[in-house]
Amino acid sequence: MSEKVLTLRGVVKEFEGQTILDGIDLEVEKGEVVVIIGPSGCGKSTLLRCINALEPIQGGEILLQGSPVKAGDKNLPVLRQKIGMVFQSYDLFPHMTIMDNITLAPRKVHKRDKAEVEREAAELLSRVGLADKAKSFPRQLSGGQKQRVAIVRMLIMHPEILLFDEVTAALDPEMVREVLDVMLELAKQGRTMIIVTHEMAFARAVAHRMIFIDEGRIVEEGKPDEFFESPKTERARNFLNMFRFQPASRS
């Protein structure tokens, strides 16, 4: 029996009278890659934000290795160190160099030694192909490069679980690949990951388990091949069909 990293039980999120998440149950095991898809506004991004306690929840519970994650809780800063998150809008700190962006949190939060953190940062940067960018500022980088830096910035905190919130959605198509390749590499290393994405081919390649959310509920989940080949529910079928095109008939 493998170790549970994350457990969600009946998570409910309400916002201004609307129910965004309507009882989400989810268990993620160590080393598992879970990909969440669903129509926009279905609550998938909100779910990630709740797991990281950026949004308070109104019902249910979120357990990280058995400890409850709650917004405003005293324990939260310690728990959150185990959760890494990368956002859609590569939010590097614009006034800092790439190196400072990466080393700020380990130095200030973990009180690690500057030289030692910079060594690790340099190594991580070279692993994502950005060794020469350490002294650059975010504005000098392309979107794809910024997003790879954001991933490094998260990794250097040594999180137990990695959350990716539509990290390629704001990128030009030719830059999507370089970011997805980094994520595939992380999956191969056996990292525990939850990924929200619209890249279906990537989802199928990287996922151990697919989750389809609609209207704040998990409608269907399963192995990627089964899910993509023969979705069980009507709603998942309709959603997946939106990504398929019939060839235009030329008569």
């Binding site: 800063p77 959150r80 956002f87 700190f93 939060v109």
Partner: peptide
């Protein structure tokens, strides 16, 4: 987003204001 990124990196609020 700047606040949220800082929060996700576990910086405290005073650290977030001071550094970011």
């Amino acid at each position: 987003h700047q606040y949220e990124s800082a929060a996700a990196l576990c910086l405290t609020l005073p650290q977030t204001y001071y550094h970011i």
